[in-house]
């Protein structure tokens, strides 16, 4: 075995142990709910809990809505900045990075102060209004990832010429974005969407302080009150994440035009 190959394997095995050992340990612990034997009791208990189903479905719906909102904001912005305002790119990138340095608690207190029941726009006064606020908060938190993903996708295509070709054929901006830009940056968008999904599913601060029944607060509550179920929840959360990654891979393979050039 060559020296380089040997060290590659050492690094690979060390990495695999670092990532997988805690996961295997968590999984092993989640199977110990019944004394003396391995069982799926903790999983049964979690899956049978109506609160699990309610909070997970709430978060999934909100995650999907957040992805739509994020895309609706980010795609035209990134498209326009790349096409017409390239000088503004550094400023836009700086703005999209702000959610990484401003803690979610600042954002949520800002929301509560601006949109409380005594304000001109009392969004916190209704459940749907609060849900909308939460979605906006999630979209803000996922902005750095979504923007970068879409921007990277746009960089990989000849956006200016493609847009001009479409315009000369009579296409409107909406047609260009929906029928040409989005399909050509689909993989990048899916990466952004997946990251958004992961952020929303695990997010705690915004949901807890806006008092909405999301999956993040449920996991925290479960961790403080049960022994084996939190481990089972962690494994389930991982499974959901990996399923999303698998889906992205699958969709990428089905997207014919992303095949390599001859």
């Amino acid at each position: 075995m060559k020296q380089g190959t040997f060290w590659s394997w050492v690094v690979f095995i060390a990495g695999a142990i670092y990532f997988f050992l805690p996961l295997i340990a968590t999984f092993e612990f989640s199977m110990r709910a019944r004394r003396g034997v391995y069982s799926f009791d903790a999983y049964r208990s979690v899956l049978a809990d109506p609160q699990f189903r309610d909070t997970l479905s709430y978060s999934v719906v909100l995650a999907l809505l957040t992805i739509v909102l994020g895309l609706a904001i980010v795609t035209p912005t990134a498209f326009w900045v790349r096409l017409k305002l390239p000088r503004l790119r550094p400023y836009i990138e700086f703005i999209t990075l702000l959610p990484l340095v401003i803690p979610p608690i600042v954002i949520v207190f800002g929301y509560i102060r601006l949109y409380n029941t005594a304000s001109y726009l009392p969004l916190t006064g209704s459940l749907r209004g609060t849900d909308f606020l939460l979605m906006c908060g999630y979209a803000t938190l996922s902005l750095p990832y979504m923007y970068r993903a879409v921007d990277t996708g746009l960089r990989s295509i000849d956006l200016v010429t493609m847009t001009e070709a479409a315009q000369s054929l009579g296409a409107s901006w909406t047609t260009i974005i929906l029928r040409l830009v989005l399909p050509n940056v689909l993989v990048a968008i899916l990466s952004g969407a997946f990251l958004t999904f992961a952020i929303v599913i695990g997010e705690y601060v915004l949901a807890a302080l806006l008092n909405r029944p999301a999956f993040g607060p449920y996991m925290v509550w479960m961790g403080g009150n049960r022994a084996y179920e939190p481990a089972a929840l962690a494994v389930i959360a991982f499974a959901i994440t990996w399923a999303c990654m698998g889906l992205i891979q699958l969709l990428t393979r089905f997207q014919k035009h992303t095949s390599k050039k001859r």
């Binding site: 295509i157 001009e164 070709a165 479409a166 315009q167 000369s168 054929l169 409107s172 399909p183 035009h257």
Partner: peptide
Amino acid sequence: RPSQRNVGLVFQSYALFPNLTVAGNIAFG
């Protein structure tokens, strides 16, 4: 606007839409 002029344009870099087939490209307009 360019979309209102009914002027056909062919570019040096082809500028075909990669997500559409040849027929899809021709049918786009």
